[in-house]
Design a protein around this nucleic acid. Structure first.
Length: 195
DNA sequence: TAACTAACCTATTCACACA
DNA sequence: TGTGTGAATAGGTTAGTTA
């Protein structure tokens, strides 16, 4: 059950020389240093260590426990901050890649449109002359092949689009994987030692 | 198995130091 | 005197113990 033992000892000590009722008093540098060192050793506080620290620092065990609780909360906040920064960097990088891919897709689409238009024109000529025009892209075209070429071209665009979609899906999946790996279930973070 | 207990958590309050 | 920081509190969850 909760322990609501307040701190008469410390308070009394502190108010004696001030003539006031200090309800909250900052810990001294020495006390903080020792607590900090202890926290760096182990984020969790076992009862023996709590008693030892309390004795050593002249504080109530409850104060030691509270200090560790607050320290863990601050530590977790920092961890979340770092995690946020890492995720943001990752997101920015993926975002840039996505934009680049989209630009490539647009360029390829434009090329394809141009290519199809030229094929249609050249097909018009071949209808008359019977000659076959070969584009620099080496895609064969004739009145017989033209629908096939268009279909292939459309397939290419669809594939590119699919690749783009896949990239997005992969990113989503990776983020999910990352979340499953990194997201910390309640309280479990506290059982891990300091990084 | 329910009740109790201790330790922990998050959210909040509040005293104090300082610009 | 407003604000940031940290000690302390409130209330909830979890896990171990016991009758």
């Amino acid at each position: 059950m909760k322990q609501h033992t307040l701190l008469p000892t410390l308070m009394e000590k502190n108010m004696n020389h001030l003539g006031v009722d200090p309800k909250k008093k900052r810990l001294s540098n020495e006390q903080l240093e020792l607590l900090e060192n202890s926290f760096q050793d182990e984020i969790k506080l076992d009862p023996d260590r709590k008693m030892k620290l309390a004795k050593e620092l002249g504080l109530q065990p409850r104060q030691i426990a509270v200090w560790f609780q607050n320290r863990r909360a601050r530590w977790k906040g920092k961890q979340l901050e770092r995690l946020y920064d890492a995720l943001k960097q990752e997101y920015d990088a993926v975002s840039r890649d996505r934009q680049k891919l989209q630009q490539e897709v647009m360029a390829l689409r434009a090329m394809l449109k141009d290519h199809v238009a030229k094929n249609q024109v050249s097909t018009g000529y071949t209808d008359v002359s019977g000659e076959e025009t070969v584009e620099s892209t080496s895609i064969p075209s004739s009145d017989k092949h033209q629908p096939v070429a268009e279909a292939e071209a459309m397939t290419t665009v669809t594939s590119l689009h699919q690749m783009n979609m896949d990239a997005e899906c992969n990113y989503q999946m990776n983020m999910d994987d990352y979340n499953n790996t990194v997201m910390i279930p309640p309280y479990s973070w506290a059982t891990t030692s300091m990084p």
